[in-house]
Simulated assay, not measured.
Amino acid sequence: MGRPHAVGIVGLGVISRQYLDTFAAGSAVRIVAVADLDAARAAEAAASLPHARAMSVDDLMAGGEVQTVLNLTIPAAHADIARAAIAAGRSVYGEKPLTMTVAEGRDLVAAADAAGVRFGGAPDTVLGTGVQTARRLIDDGALGRPVAATATWISPGHEAWHPAPDFYYAPGGGPLFDMGPYYLTSLVHLLGPVVAVSGAGRRMRAERTIATGPRAGRTVPVEVDTHVSGLLEHASGAVSTIVTSFDGVATSAPPIEVHGDAGSLMVPDPNMFDGDVRIRRLGGVDWETVAPSAGYVGAGRGVGLIDAFTSPTGPRADARMALHVLDVMESLLRSSRENRRVEIDTRVDVPPLVPLTPPERWR
């Protein structure tokens, strides 16, 4: 692997712990700097990391040691932090969504290209053995010709567990922008890019009540649709449907199903990296569990960043994929508002399959 890749983290909220755990389990990445609006939180994080210093965002960007900025801020800040990193000549990898708008995302992709730096974004869960094994089956023709897929995510809302859920109900949030990227990125990896969408969204309540933490009992305003359904037309000819909701309770439906003329496939939770892939073949009498045959084994959040500087085929969790998914989400909401089918302007090449890669070869 050579020398560890030097990373500076901006934003040390709940999700940062998962990235830190991934990096701590191997030697591919070294955290050299951390920054957060809460200086005490940054200092606490730096104290737990052997090579890291707590500093301001400006100092982190200016510091010569940082090779890639890991942007874990709230969605409203994603574009500003990415823009500053690119301007400073740093590669940047960010949490989803890529930016708040497709227009912002296009500008940043162009800026990164002009600056000659890498620009990537979550989700990287699609690089684990779950989605990658499912994709290998599809690529190998196990389903025949794929014709349809369904993706379903339903919950009562994040205020039930998150102590500060405000941003989930602000622009850039909602079930589609929060959970949709996992499902939509998986559908693109499995069935190819999307060329048109039709969507319908609803906002069921004007406010939500926080159930846990120091603000329990307080309410937050709802500024986004909390139930979104959509139909996606893929360039391959397949048609998929997606449901994302903060207005239900639970579902027994598989997270993702893919159907072809020779078989059907159950894909595990795309918010996770692994899980059982199950197939039922034409003429078969039951579902078969398929052994992992592709993907990063034992992966965690941050594997997409590691893949960006280690993969010989180039970064798989690239900003162009995240931009395409953002375009699909933005277009679903536009379709709902305007009551019409919306064509997708962005195009993306589906990245190469991840070979089955044990932890010691990627961490």
Rank of each mutant, 00 (worst) to 15 (best):
R281I: 11
A211E: 15
V57Q: 15
A40C: 04
A77F: 15
P165H: 05
A238L: 01
G213P: 14
V239N: 05
A62R: 15
M329K: 07
V350Y: 06
I81P: 13
V258E: 03
V194M: 00
P351I: 00
D124I: 05
P255R: 00
P50F: 07
L191Y: 04
A291H: 08
V147H: 04
A47N: 11
H162F: 11
E104Y: 02
D274P: 09
G180L: 06
V224Y: 13
A84E: 14
F246M: 01
P123D: 12
G213R: 10
E330R: 08
G213I: 07
P175M: 01
A308Y: 09
A253G: 00
G105C: 04
A6W: 01
V102A: 09
Y183I: 06
V109W: 09
G130S: 03
M55L: 14
H189K: 02
P355W: 12
D38E: 10
V220G: 04
E95Y: 14
G192P: 03
I210G: 06
S264L: 03
G314W: 11
G283P: 12
I15F: 14
D225V: 08
H5K: 05
V328T: 01
A200D: 15
T68E: 10
T101L: 03
V109A: 14
W153N: 08
V354E: 09
E223L: 12
V239Y: 01
G217K: 11
S48Y: 01
R281D: 06
T101V: 07
P270S: 02
V32W: 10
N339L: 15
V325K: 02
T133K: 00
I279E: 00
M204Y: 03
A319Y: 13
P181K: 08
G201Q: 01
A262E: 15
T101P: 14
L37M: 12
V147T: 14
G314V: 12
I9L: 14
D38Y: 09
G302Q: 04
V297F: 10
V188W: 07
A122S: 14
G94T: 15
Y183Q: 06
I344L: 07
D261M: 04
T22Q: 06
S264I: 06
M55R: 08
G116H: 07
R135H: 06
A39Q: 13
L353H: 08
A112I: 00
L232R: 00
H162W: 13
R106D: 13
A111T: 01
D318V: 13
M100K: 05
L232P: 13
A76Y: 12
T133I: 03
P352N: 03
A85P: 14
P75C: 10
G248L: 03
S229E: 15
V7S: 11
R30I: 02
A122L: 12
A211L: 13
G230A: 09
S311Y: 10
D349M: 06
P359E: 08
A87V: 05
A149P: 10
F177R: 15
P171M: 09
